[in-house]
Amino acid sequence: MSMLEGAPWLLAHKSMLEVNKPRKISLYGKDYVLWKDNLGEVKALPNACPHMGAMLSEGWCQQGKDGASEIVCPFHALGFDGKGCTILPGTKKKTLPQLEPLELIVQGDLIWSYGNCKPQASIPNILNEISSQYEFVGHIADISIESNLLSMLLNMHDYNHQNGTHRPLFKIEEVQFKSFQDHGHHSHALYNLPTAPTTLAEKLRHPKLLLLPKIIEVHLENHFPSMVIFHGENLLGRIAQVNFFLPESTNRTRTYVLLYGLPKSFAFPLLKHNLLDFARVITEQDGDILGKIYSNTVPKMKLNNEVGMDWVRRNFENWPEIVESNLSKRMF
């Protein structure tokens, strides 16, 4: 199972969909069209029109005769409802379903899917908890990367890459690893990142540097395989930066960020765009380095504190089973 079929994937937050504007998404090597109507209801169908294969995501939305929202093919203007039915020209009756809908699980503003596979794991409740406690700040860095899912996950759980990949912006000097707590498909990693001093001139040129403490205290909460949550705090307040991963195909992975905040300063609304920009830069740097790695290289050495990568490999190789290990008992 190279794409971990049966895992729950967060396709989007509703704020990422414009009303009645179709959007193409991919999952498990299949393309779908996703759209949201005026009432906030979300539907998804295979993206290829069953007539001649036109991309439905290049079409538009309209209200059908029964009042439901339809996606309209850009080639011959056939309108398909959420069940995949259409009315052929010259007739007044709907056809049987011509397209198999993508099954969605909508929890508030969160749009989940198992990709029409048999569920092998439950949807984590952590996002509902965060949504109930934090203010939703926004979404950022929705990109597709030429990388298989495993490589993407290994990169995100490689705690030693912080002072390499992310050094240009954050000037991270070292990684001070503290602990890793293993709970099967759920884990926590805690470490500190001391940063190099910045001059006043540098801060004036890059105001976002004002938000960085001398030591970045990192708490990553991991939900295999689709989510990494950075819990942090700065002068503006507490934040929960949630990174998502979805296997678009065997060699292409989509990632994006949802940001939540708990303000403790009047300046939070004024500077929250800087927090989003941090998330964008981090995501783009991770995507950039993945394109500069020879993926077929066999590692000949092992660094300290690669426990997060070990955790990913163990869960990936044994999916969907949860395998007991002694990762949480290791000394670091």
Rank of each mutant, 00 (worst) to 15 (best):
E321R: 15
I293Q: 08
E129Y: 07
L149K: 09
H223A: 02
H161C: 01
R238N: 04
L190D: 09
G90K: 11
M16A: 05
L220G: 05
V19M: 14
I216S: 09
T199H: 03
E18V: 04
E5S: 11
Y28S: 02
P119C: 04
P320L: 13
P22E: 07
L96Q: 13
P225S: 12
R23D: 00
P8F: 13
G291H: 10
G115I: 04
Q98W: 07
D288H: 08
H186R: 12
F75C: 11
N38A: 15
E202M: 08
H13W: 04
P22Q: 10
H166L: 09
K214G: 13
L56C: 03
A240S: 08
L236Q: 07
G53S: 05
G164V: 11
A12N: 08
K302Q: 03
P97N: 03
F230K: 04
T250C: 06
S249D: 09
P89A: 08
I105V: 15
E221W: 03
E321P: 05
K214E: 14
P207H: 01
L200S: 15
P50S: 06
L10H: 10
V307Y: 01
N243Y: 04
H76Y: 10
K264Y: 00
S226C: 08
P8V: 13
A279C: 08
G287Q: 05
K43M: 11
K329R: 06
G59P: 09
Q98T: 09
M156L: 05
D109M: 02
F170T: 11
Y260Q: 02
Q120I: 01
I71E: 06
I140V: 13
G53H: 07
G164P: 00
F278Q: 01
P207G: 04
V137E: 02
A77Y: 14
